[in-house]
């Protein structure tokens, strides 16, 4: 359950960005949590309800997208989707592939409210 540590780091980043923008509250936090990131979205959601307490993001909505896993083959150039524990080329079936999508653990954007 390392999702709570990750979430606490997230909240510190959000608080810093909110302060930089003189925001009074954070409405929405948008993340990308790839299937190979090692983070379980449901556990992150639970951790978020704990970590946001008493912060500028106390009422923020958490929006998570997972995306898919994509690989590109170094041998034949084939590209496509792969399963989490079978990162194989969709064309030739070999394992010498680069993962081009699926490992992201990113804070994409924040919706902020500021007093004019």
């Amino acid at each position: 359950m390392h999702e709570l540590s990750v979430c606490q780091g997230l909240i510190r980043q959000v608080e810093r960005i909110a302060a930089e923008n003189a925001a009074t509250s954070v409405d929405r936090i948008v993340l990308k949590v790839g299937p190979l990131s090692g983070i379980e979205p449901e556990l992150l959601r639970h951790a978020f309800t704990i970590a946001r307490e008493g912060t500028v993001a106390a009422l923020a909505e958490l929006e998570l997208s997972q995306g898919s896993i994509k690989v590109r083959c170094r041998l034949c150039g084939g590209a496509g989707e792969a399963a989490v524990n079978r990162l194989l080329c969709p064309d030739c079936g070999e394992w010498q592939v680069d993962v081009t999508e699926g490992e992201e653990l990113l804070l994409l954007s924040l919706d902020l409210e500021t007093s004019l």
């Binding site: 923008n21 924040l110 500021t114 007093s115």
Partner: peptide, 8 residues
Amino acid sequence: VDKKTVDV
């Protein structure tokens, strides 16, 4: 009240 989206 102003609302804005910040890309991070």
